[in-house]
């Protein structure tokens, strides 16, 4: 045992919420099934969902990761698959949940990532990166499950740090949001970047 009190108080991430492999595979299928064909939500719900996204983007821009973490459902499935250049005749499914990915995370894994950022020893985030996260093209649909919504959106995420170091990533998100008494929670997120080669050195960022 370490005598360092901070190490001793290190969170035990193995007790944090996660999914087993079968649950994760089922969650991936839920995301892949989202196709924007459900009935559009009513205006009030749509407005509330947009507000949720605007707040989420602002929290991430302001590095308020713990507040953002609280917007995540305990059964979160958070996935950014790789994009491969394949011929149209290629029969393989474009997104395979068992293939390598850029993010393939549960809530506990997000906590580990936040743990890194909060360690105060991540030199590549000190001085901090400046972020602007724009979310748009929001379309929200009923799913057949009460209080659970399919939401499709697009984003542009700009980062700048140091002097000339910047990255602009655009993409699409497909989410499942769940309505609770405390507001919405993000239960599933599929993030699709158009880049087959990530044209920047890292994804030191959340989407």
């Amino acid at each position: 045992m370490s005598s360092d009190p901070i190490a001793a108080n290190k969170p035990d991430y193995s007790t944090y919420p996660t999914l087993d492999r079968a649950q994760a595979a089922a969650a991936a299928q839920e995301l892949l099934a989202l196709d924007g064909r459900g009935a559009p939500v009513d205006m009030a719900t749509h407005h509330a969902i947009e507000r949720f996204y605007l707040r989420e983007a602002r929290l991430l821009d302001e590095e308020r990761y713990r507040d953002w973490y609280d917007m995540l459902a305990d059964d979160l499935f958070y996935w950014m698959p790789l994009r491969e250049n394949r011929f149209r005749r290629d029969k393989r499914a474009p997104f395979d949940p068992s293939a390598m990915a850029l993010f393939d995370e549960r809530k506990a894994d997000i906590a580990v990532r936040i743990g890194r950022l909060e360690s105060t020893m991540v030199w590549t985030e000190d001085p901090p990166t400046r972020h602007v996260y724009l979310v748009s093209n929001v379309e929200a649909f009923e799913t057949g499950i009460d209080g659970q919504y399919e939401v499709q959106s697009a984003f542009i995420q700009y980062r700048n740090r140091s002097e000339h170091d910047d990255a602009t990533l655009a993409g699409r998100r497909r989410d499942i949001l769940r309505s609770t008494t405390d507001g919405f929670l993000l239960a599933r997120r599929l993030i699709l970047l158009p880049q087959s080669i990530l044209l920047t050195k890292n994804l030191s960022v959340f989407f």
Partner: peptide, 21 residues
């Protein structure tokens, strides 16, 4: 698959430390 991604990929908690150097 997930462990190597979370440590040594562009989103990896260790690989992300390296690039700027």
């Amino acid at each position: 698959r997930r462990g190597s991604m979370r440590t040594f990929s562009p989103s990896g908690i260790l690989e992300m430390d390296d690039g700027e150097n």
